[in-house]
Simulated assay, not measured.
Amino acid sequence: MLRGGRTIELVEATLRHDDRPALRVRAWLMRPNDTAAIAGTPITAIAPPESMPAWDPGTVWPGGFIKSVEIRRHNQGPGRATYWARAKHALLDDEPVSPLARAATLFDLSNGMAVRADPKDVAFPNLDLTAHLFGMPEGEWLGFDTSVSFGRQGLGLTSTVLHDARGPIGMLGQALTVRP
């Protein structure tokens, strides 16, 4: 715990490999309040997963993780796509996990599902991933409305609005290093 409190806390976890930090996660934990009477957003919902064609992300990306995810996608051109994703396998065998934990396993898909350039020609790994939620995810599908931008000096940004079956629930941001 980095900052304790009665209504807001900041927590951090670090994954180490060979005694070096490999991954650091921080989360603000907030006491929930009943705001149902004023809930809403001007962000437009994306089309439901059943209206989008199945897409094999293995046509762009190799690896085991990408094969473990089902994708339904509407490609809108370089660096722009709307899509739905769901895991084909449980996060933990014989262990229930929260809808938030299940959704969080899919957050890092964002940069790879709306590619701006062929990853065989240009590397564009994300340096970070920041998630801001205004609703807790429900259901097995997580929707993404993603735009990928490359600047002129090797910088990039992936911006995503997250959705569940009810509509928008949050946003993701990823800073990119772009390397031809």
Rank of each mutant, 00 (worst) to 15 (best):
M1K: 15
L2H: 11
G4L: 09
G5Q: 08
L10F: 09
L10V: 08
V11N: 13
V11M: 12
E12M: 07
R16T: 09
H17D: 07
D18I: 08
W28H: 06
T35M: 06
T35Y: 05
A37R: 10
A37E: 01
T44A: 13
A47R: 15
A47D: 06
E50K: 15
S51M: 12
M52P: 01
G58N: 15
G58W: 14
V60E: 01
F65C: 01
K67M: 11
E70N: 03
E70S: 06
I71L: 10
Y83M: 02
H89T: 11
A90Y: 09
L92W: 05
D94R: 09
E95D: 10
P96G: 05
V97C: 02
A101M: 09
T105G: 04
T105C: 08
L106R: 05
S110E: 00
G112V: 04
R116N: 09
P119D: 02
P119R: 15
V122G: 06
F124P: 00
F124S: 02
P125W: 12
T130A: 04
A131C: 04
F134E: 00
P137N: 11
S147C: 13
F150M: 01
F150R: 04
Q153G: 07
Q153L: 08
G154V: 07
T160C: 07
D164L: 13
R166M: 11
P168F: 13
I169K: 14
L172E: 00
G173C: 06
A175C: 07
R179I: 10
P180C: 14
